[in-house]
């Protein structure tokens, strides 16, 4: 119990004293995971829309595969991207392994299935009656689609937050692709893993609190944007 209390105390003192390394790690975590979420959103939301509004053979199977990939272990996603980005791999010439950009790619790959799935759920959540009504009112197909998307935006933002949450909290891909290099690819989760293995339990808990804190800020910010 003592260690948990210590963790709280240390978290506050780190935040109040604006410890430069903690600030830097926190900023890096936030930027990498926000970028990964942005990239994944740009890919996944249009893709989800495409799958929802088009009828094609194997649609059910495709959706099952996407939903299965929700459970993609972070280490496996990390390993997959590691093999792609390694100098011996197909994209090795880009030199992105052990870089923040590589980590963005890894986290984006990890959460794209989740975001596609959430987009599908959001769009199918819009009542059929609404789209029928719009069409009855003389709307074109494009107008109907845009209306459905607008109706679904609350759920889609929810999906984005879920994706961001998975990105910023995962350690497997960040560790394998980023390598936990101090001052370069060390993020909150990999720092927590390192501090735990070095026995600095209170510091690990403090970093965990900070992670939850910024997750809350991002969630609130996205909801404010959505409310407008």
């Amino acid at each position: 119990m003592n260690e948990i209390v210590d963790g709280f105390v240390q978290a506050f003192s780190l935040i109040i004293s604006l410890d430069p390394e903690v600030l830097e790690i926190t900023a890096r975590s936030l930027l990498i995971s926000l970028a990964a979420t942005a990239v994944a959103s740009l890919v996944a939301i249009p893709l989800g829309g495409l799958i929802h509004f088009r009828e094609f053979g194997g649609k059910r199977g495709l959706i099952t595969i996407i939903q299965t990939l929700y459970a993609l272990p972070t280490v496996v996603a990390g390993l997959f991207v590691f093999l792609l980005l390694s100098r011996a791999g197909p994209l090795g010439f880009l030199g992105l392994l052990f870089t923040p950009v590589g980590m963005v790619i890894g986290q984006a790959v990890l959460i794209i299935p989740l975001l596609v799935g959430m987009t599908l759920v959001a769009l199918s959540g819009v009542k059929r009656a609404i789209s029928d009504e719009i069409v009855a009112l003389g709307a074109t197909q494009t107008q109907a689609i845009l209306t459905i998307i607008r109706e679904a935006r609350f759920a889609i933002i929810g999906g984005i937050i879920l994706g961001f949450g998975r990105a910023i909290s995962e350690v497997g891909a960040a560790m394998i692709i980023g390598g936990n290099i101090r001052g370069y690819t060390r993020v909150l989760t990999t720092a927590i893993a390192l501090e735990t293995s070095m026995g600095n339990i209170a510091l690990s808990i403090a970093l965990g609190m900070i992670l939850l804190g910024i997750a809350m800020v991002v969630t609130v910010a996205l909801f404010i944007v959505q409310e407008r």
Binding site: L31, A38, L146, R150, R153, I156, Q226
Partner: peptide
């Protein structure tokens, strides 16, 4: 439209990242 809002959010996030990159000096 909702879709545009989401697109804008993504764009803003991207912009934050790019501007952030210039202020966070890697390797320190």
């Amino acid at each position: 439209h909702g879709g545009t809002v989401i697109f804008l959010v993504a764009l803003v996030l991207g912009a934050i990242l790019i501007s952030g990159c210039t202020t966070t000096n890697p390797g320190q």
